[in-house]
Amino acid sequence: MTTRIALIGFGKIARDQHQPALAAHEGFDLVATVDPQLTADATSTPASFTDFDALLASDVEVDAVALCVPPQHRFAVACQAIEAGLHVLLEKPPGITLSEVADLEQRAATAGTVLYASWHSRHAPAIEAAREWLLPQTVTAVEIDWCEDVKVFHPGQAWIWEPGGLGVFDPGINALSIATHILLRPFALREATLDVPGNCATPIAARLAFVDTNGAPVDAIMDWRHEGPPRWQIRVVTDAGELRLEEGGGRLSIDGDVRIDEDKDEYGGVYDRFASLIQEQRSEVDLRPFTHVADAFMLGRRRTVEDFHE
């Protein structure tokens, strides 16, 4: 059975990733888009609305929504959708606080709808193979290097610098979503340094020092001031060799031997998972990546750096 779905928020991520993934997916039918600033692209869907209330009041039949609005606005829209009996997919991060996402999970359980807090990077081509290889190994150290140019990948997105926008953790949480999935042992933050521009509320760079339950260090560098090609890579040292994930999970090598090197189709995997959850009538809300970010804001020493100007 095809699920009729609406995209709420039709900005860059919705146009670049969600719309193509839905167009290629047999399990979904994109029936509407909602965005206060409609673009010409939005008219390519059967129905377009400037606000969610208008969609709910229309005769367009919808079973589910994918929320691609900035995280500061996600909770209110998700509450409306759940109250209307719709299944809800949350783009990452799932919200701006842990408590509001826990609230959404309870609301969905009470309403009998599906809530899916998606982590698209977990669906990169090499992730499951990396997880399988690591399962029997003893990890001795992990290094995360997640650096990109904010002016290239997040142009004109002022909300990322506001409270709840996460700053560099908006992409950095992708690395944490991968690490929490492929590493067998949990890890916890011990210290962090956050570089915050003087004219912003969120960090432009972060250094994080985690330790897993066996004492192995898990160190992360995230920086939006990086110039040139992005570095989205994770290095895992084990008793059986060294695993490297590069290209955000598109490439996997073991001791220098490349095992997987494929173009990423992460959002196809996201919607495969959402379709399965709807069929099984169960929610999936893994808050571990978001919890690590919250811990960084709690424990991190903030350093004021030069103002950011796009």
Score class of each variant (00 low, 15 high):
R107V: 04
E143W: 09
Y116I: 06
D149C: 13
R131I: 03
A188Q: 11
V168P: 01
S118A: 15
V139S: 08
L208N: 02
P186H: 04
E191M: 08
P136F: 11
V196P: 02
G112F: 04
I173D: 00
P163N: 03
T113A: 02
Q157K: 15
P217R: 04
E143Q: 15
P155R: 14
A117F: 00
T138H: 14
A209H: 09
P203Q: 02
R131E: 06
R122Q: 13
W119D: 06
R131K: 15
G228Q: 10
R207S: 13
I182D: 00
T140G: 11
L166K: 10
P125W: 03
E162Y: 08
P197T: 01
H154M: 14
L189G: 03
D212C: 10
L134G: 07
T193K: 08
P229G: 11
E143Y: 10
M222V: 12
T138I: 12
G164V: 09
A188K: 08
P136L: 12
T138M: 11
A188L: 08
R131C: 03
P171K: 07
T213R: 08
H120Q: 12
L184P: 04
C200H: 07
W224H: 06
L208A: 05
E148M: 15
H120Y: 13
V114T: 09
A201H: 13
V114L: 06
R185Y: 08
E162S: 11
V211D: 14
L134H: 08
W159K: 05
H120A: 11
Q137W: 06
Q137A: 14
D223S: 10
